[in-house]
Each structure stands twice: as structure tokens, then as C-alpha cells.
Simulated assay, not measured.
Amino acid sequence: MSINEQLFCNIDLNLTITFLVLFREGSVSRTAACMNVGQPAVSGSLSRLRSYFDDPLFIRTKSGVRPTHKAILIEQKLSPALHCIEAVLTGNV
């Protein structure tokens, strides 16, 4: 099985971590704190993700953000994939 290298050249995979932390935290400020970055960095990452996926991904609420339907579908596929990568990187293969 081979991968489509060109597809991966078009996105910074670090954005996937920001996506998952934002999905978990439901707040740009809490995501920034968890990742030890500023809120503008998380907002910038979210903007890039929105453009890439052509979807708002998260909707502002009084208490933070909630995921769109598309964001939920992305998380369902992305989370297990990144857990597998995490296992490889930590030697738990």
C-alpha cells in the first residue's frame, strides 16, 4: 500500500494536532494554553484548516466552540490515525 505524497505536501500535519486539541477542549484559549502557544496561533491554524477542508469546522458559542458535522466526521477518522502514529513514535508498536 502506498501513500499519495503530494496530498501530504499540501498540509502541515501539525494542524491536525491543533484540530484534535480544539475538538477536545472546545475553546481556542484552552487549546492555546494546552499547546503553549498564543490564541492568535490557534486562530491562524483554524483558519488554515477551514480553508483546507472548506468548512467552518467549529462554530462559536457563548462558552467556546462546537464542532460542525464535518468536524465530527474528521475527528472520528483522524483521532485513531494519530493514536497509531503516537504508538509508533513512542515505540509502542
Rank of each mutant, 00 (worst) to 15 (best):
S45A: 15
T90I: 05
R48F: 00
G91I: 08
V37E: 04
R60G: 08
L89M: 14
H83K: 14
L73K: 11
A33G: 05
F58L: 02
F23D: 03
P40C: 06
T31N: 05
E25M: 11
L82G: 01
K70C: 00
T18P: 02
S79R: 15
F23A: 02
E86H: 13
D55R: 03
H69N: 10
S2T: 11
S51N: 14
G91R: 06
V88S: 09
S45T: 00
R30Y: 08
P56Y: 02
F53T: 01
N4H: 12
A33W: 04
C9A: 13
Y52I: 06
V42F: 06
F19S: 00
L20E: 03
F58S: 01
S47V: 00
I59R: 13
L7T: 11
Q76E: 15
L82Q: 07
A81R: 05
A41G: 00
D12P: 06
D12L: 01
A33F: 12
K62V: 05
A71W: 02
F8K: 01
V21A: 08
N92Q: 14
L46A: 01
I17H: 09
N4M: 06
V93Y: 14
V37T: 09
G91E: 09
R48Q: 14
V21D: 03
T31E: 06
T16C: 12
V21M: 08
I17A: 11
L57W: 04
L73V: 00
